[in-house]
Amino acid sequence: MDDDIADILASVSAPALPVRTLDLQALTRAWVNERTAPELLPYPTDLVDRVMERIGKQISTIEEMSGTMDPQANFTLVILQTELERFKFLVRSFLRARIAKIDTYTLHYATLPSQLSPLERQYLQSHQSLISTHYSTSFLSTFPTSLQKLDDTAGGISMVDKPDEDAAVFCRVLRDTGNVEIQGISEVAEIEMKRGDVRVLRWSAVKEAVERGDVELI
């Protein structure tokens, strides 16, 4: 719960925490969100850039320190390296979670380029053309022309697979965000989202609040 209080303090009063602490928190949160959300979240360009810059610096610091061969520095080195490995893991796992979603719903995200980073966009396009070529050379090119499409919607079924927006997610409310509508079997109910609440809700119901940063997934 301390994290939440820090978060509130940082957003309401003057920043009580250094940017790097906040960035670590933001990165951890982005990572958890990305791993639990059924949909791809907007790419946090600034955050990733800052973190990557700092990782680069840390790597050179470590190289310098290990170059001096000072036995006194060894203990510090271990700590620095452990921290570095953890940061690397966070970013790696974050990016891999995104790639996994992009791979699963390639055609769907091809229509939503704003959620992706330029690199991911490149990856998606190349991957998509690879897959199409693969299907085409394997069998599709010999099909009747009317059946060669990969994004057909004929017959009321779209060939483009989409993430399940109604999947249930566990979330914690970070800031009061008012009421959220909940669609039941027969009626619609409303619940109030208060700070500290932990709930299981449909992703579609909390999606916007998560993107605003008012709610985090857990």
Binding site: M52, G56, Q81, R86, K88, V91, R92, S93, R96
Partner: peptide, 14 residues
């Protein structure tokens, strides 16, 4: 810097 294909297990020990 990240080694994207590295381990996806959270690192515990160096």
């Amino acid at each position: 810097d990240i080694d994207l294909t590295g381990s996806l297990e959270p690192p515990k020990d160096l």
